[in-house]
Write a protein that binds this DNA or RNA. Structure first.
Lengths: 113, 113
DNA sequence: CGATGACGTCGATATCTATCGAACACTACG
DNA sequence: CGTAGTGTTCGATAGATATCGACGTCATCG
């Protein structure tokens, strides 16, 4: 019963490096993507908790939108909740090695917590 | 007779991923770094011309500062001018594969011109 | 149906950032 | 010494962005 809303997800061909980097530049979003990448799939609220970020739900939703519009994460509707995942394949196709380099970086070198 | 001003350059140990990504997220700075990487070394004014960016010298100087403070470029004083170069070694040490992924991306996928 | 839980959107706000021109500092050269 | 070239810094400004709480929407569960 899962649904994907493609309207809100840019096709792989439309991904732009500047946009992706801008999305990943924010510490909260960087932490979110890294957490999501290690977990695999996760509903919003669970991910919000996993990251341990002390930001409101609306702010988290805002970051989530930035990441989605940049083409970094995908949203899948499952009942009342949305399952998030990293668009590894598309990212690796457009920017080979980029995601890997970002995920391989040690926590100590991330930035402001 | 070249001089390096270390005060203004963060040591490799202080580089942070968020900061580096934020610095590279701006299309003008991204183009600057890519141009500099292909050229090797270049004085400011020459690089400013190479990139073809239609921004003022003061704005270019601003971007240059952001890149330097992020640890991405190095400045070396040579007479009246400053020679810029990419800190490949330090970047590769801290964030293996990151710079390569960014330089390997095709021009069409960069972002706003 | 009514309540609850999960999210998104809106409007407001405070901060950051990109941009510019003018003014300044320094080197080189005559 | 004066002029030209190179680059930075300052002050101002317009636009972006991160943040929040309140409200609306949709699904689920009783």
């Amino acid at each position: 019963m899962d649904t994907t809303i493609d309207d809100r997800h840019p096709p792989a061909a439309d991904l732009r490096l500047s946009t992706v980097l801008a999305a990943l530049a924010d510490p909260a979003r960087l932490a979110t993507v890294r957490a999501l990448a290690t977990v695999g799939d996760s509903p919003c609220s669970e991910l919000h908790h996993t990251t341990g970020l002390r930001i409101s739900r609306s702010t988290f939703s805002h970051h989530q939108r930035i990441l989605r519009e940049a083409g970094i994460i995908r949203e899948r509707i499952h009942g009342a909740q949305r399952i998030l995942s990293v668009r590894r394949d598309d990212l690796d196709t457009c920017f080979p090695g980029l995601l890997g380099a970002i995920l391989d970086t040690s926590d100590a070198l991330l930035g402001a917590p």
